[in-house]
């Protein structure tokens, strides 16, 4: 494996370069007054001023975040309840849950968005302006991932704890709330985070179900690339940079946490052995 001391860093660096070159170059140019990449660099924060002072942009970003939060909360509640219901059902019923849950996961988002739109808007005649098709549709693509993230946690739980709670006089409802839910909390939290990111990343369901006057970041960006408003276009470079930095910070924090967690458990293990 000696040759890998040279090959591995080279391959990994090239891959990272491919992944990050566009984002980083765009970030660099977001701090200039250039209208396209490759122009000479003149430092300017105009894009950031536009991003934070244009009402249209601010509304769009706030709307996207609010939508993601609402969808993630609904998805987390539904997905968690679904995972528990499915886990404690008979095998046949549990399989039915699993298969139905898997449909939006493997399905193409275009098809999901289109079919939700036909059902709710064309067949049921619900107006897109009510936001109901949008929220219901995004929940369809988010809730299954909450289910998938909670379900394995139920399997890892010791079933005797729930029985013990019942023996000690807790009602089933109380036992679920005070014993089961805390045990599966990590799954619920990571499901919630996934739901938020999936909603933020969604384009197809939004474009088929959203009110005409409402835009998410995705639909807004796609329209802006078709349009010719240079000022808005370059302000989106600033938005891209801000989002990149936020995600980067979150990743670094999570990485630190998992490393220190590993160290802590390693230390614990060592102490237990000693």
């Amino acid at each position: 494996m000696k040759k890998n001391t040279f090959v591995t860093p080279l391959v990994l660096t090239l891959a990272l370069l491919f992944i990050y070159a566009p984002i980083l170059i765009l970030a660099l140019y977001s701090f200039t007054d250039a209208a396209s990449i490759g122009e000479s660099l003149h430092f300017s924060v105009q894009n950031y001023v536009t991003l934070f002072t244009t009402e249209e942009l601010a509304d769009m970003i706030k709307g996207t975040l609010l939508l993601a939060l609402i969808v993630a909360v609904i998805s987390t509640i539904l997905g968690t309840l679904g995972a528990m219901g499915s886990f404690y059902s008979k095998p046949g019923m549990s399989a039915a849950y699993r298969i139905a849950n898997q449909v939006p996961v493997v399905n193409a988002d275009v098809v999901t968005g289109f079919s939700i739109c036909i059902l709710l808007v064309v067949v049921f005649g619900i107006s897109k302006d009510t936001f109901f098709p949008l929220v219901a549709g995004q929940t369809v693509i988010c809730a299954p991932f909450v289910y998938l993230s909670v379900y394995p946690k139920l399997g890892q739980m010791d079933p005797a704890i729930y029985e013990a709670a019942l023996d000690l006089g807790a009602s089933p409802q109380v036992a679920v709330r005070k014993v089961v839910i805390p045990q599966i909390m990590p799954g619920i939290v990571s499901g919630f985070v996934m739901a938020v990111t999936l909603s933020l990343d969604d384009y197809f369901v939004a474009t088929y179900t959203k009110p005409a006057s409402f835009d998410t970041i995705s639909t807004y960006v796609v329209n802006a690339t078709r349009g010719s408003q240079t000022q808005i276009k370059t302000a989106l470079w600033a938005l891209s940079t801000v989002i990149f930095l936020i995600v980067l910070v979150i990743c670094i924090v999570m990485n630190r946490k998992s490393i220190s967690g590993e160290k802590r458990s390693a230390r614990k293990a060592r102490r237990a052995n000693a």
Partner: peptide
Amino acid sequence: KGAILMLMIMPMWINFTLRITALKELLTM
């Protein structure tokens, strides 16, 4: 290792329309 894997995966959490915008600007150049 963990940090490098995280970097490889991180684009999943950045809105894809913004990433494609970045790619498009670079390709256009």
